[in-house]
């Protein structure tokens, strides 16, 4: 187990290095100069040159890249050009909001998807199954930009139960989390159902039934455990995407998360901030990947034995 974790951690370095290299290259390839955006059109060429020098943007690209990597190695992501504050502080202000929203949406989706998928599979062909399939398809198809305002109209304007937008208490979290979770839920329910159907047709399930194991136990213990492997893979990928910030949901619900910050940083050509955000997203993805791997081992003892 420990070896597996260590192997993951070692693989993180080249992965993040690759991501950072690509982002650095692409950012410097697209047109737009952060200094000109920051100082405006009327800035004196001497001021533009001086600030570019201060920010190290007048150096050759390899030198800028090397300097950036050295700083990152020391835990310094530099200064945000647009916000004139340390990148770590700017991201630190926004990331908790993203974590809060992502974790809530993820837990909500998972806690609904597994029971719904299991029931749909156990009652395959029944009305419950058909309704679940239709609802999950709808959940996966509804676009956020339509679903979000619709939920606001229903629950905030119509019923007056929930705030329209913004971040505050638990009530503020409900609509953005549900909007995000519904998209995930549709995919996960269908996946759990399909995996369960496959597991329920396996020999070991027939054997368990033949031995007189109660039906609920066959489904929840014997079949579900084996059906969860593909679910863990997809759920891990979706959790990683959630941690990258849900730009549309954050925009609609005025949620001050990382997704909106990345868009603002790209518009301002705020290279250090974009790189810092990408690094944060990369670390989040890799961390989720690691957790997913550990979940695999918890589900499937053969993987533990392989170590």
């Amino acid at each position: 187990m420990l070896r597996r974790v260590l192997r993951h951690v070692v693989l993180v370095v080249p992965t993040l290095l690759g991501v950072l290299t690509l982002v650095f290259a692409f950012l410097h390839l697209v047109p737009g100069d952060p200094v000109e955006i920051m100082l405006g059109e009327s800035a004196a060429p001497s001021d533009v040159a001086a600030l570019r020098h201060d920010l190290g943007l007048d150096r050759p690209l390899p030198a800028q890249y090397a300097r950036f990597l050295v700083r990152v190695a020391h835990g310094d992501l530099g200064q945000s050009i647009a916000f004139r504050a340390p990148v770590t502080a700017v991201i630190g202000d926004r990331y908790p909001a993203t974590l809060e929203l992502a974790a809530t949406a993820f837990l909500l989706a998972l806690s609904l998807a597994i029971p719904l998928g299991v029931v749909a599979a156990a009652r395959a062909g029944s009305m419950v199954d058909r309704l679940t399939r239709i609802a999950s398809l709808a959940g996966a198809c509804l676009p956020t930009f339509w679903l979000g305002p619709l939920l606001i109209l229903g629950f905030s304007i119509g019923l007056g139960w929930l705030p329209v937008s913004g971040r505050g208490g638990v009530l503020h979290l409900v609509l953005p989390a549900v909007t995000l979770a519904l998209g995930m839920l549709g995919v996960l329910v269908r996946l759990v159902r399909a995996s369960m159907l496959e597991a329920l047709g396996q020999d070991y399930v027939r054997t368990a039934r033949a031995k007189g194991t109660p039906g609920w136990r066959v489904v929840t213990v014997h079949a579900l455990r084996n059906a969860l492997m593909p679910v863990a893979t997809v759920a891990g990928l979706q959790a990683g995407a959630l941690l990258a910030g849900a730009i549309l949901t954050e925009t609609i619900f005025a949620w001050p998360g990382l997704g909106r910050l990345v868009v603002e940083a790209i518009s301002a050509r705020d290279y250090p901030l974009v790189q810092g955000c990408v690094l944060t997203i990369g670390v989040s993805y890799v961390s989720v990947n690691l957790v997913t791997d550990l979940v695999y081992q918890a589900i499937d003892p053969r993987l533990r034995d392989a170590d």
């Binding site: 329209v164 913004g166 909106r260």
Partner: peptide, 18 residues
């Protein structure tokens, strides 16, 4: 002063009086 990027949501906030 709140930041509400989406125009529809800004209008709904006004409509609700928040």
């Amino acid at each position: 002063v709140r930041v509400v990027p989406d125009e529809v949501v800004r209008s709904l906030e006004l409509d609700r009086g928040t």
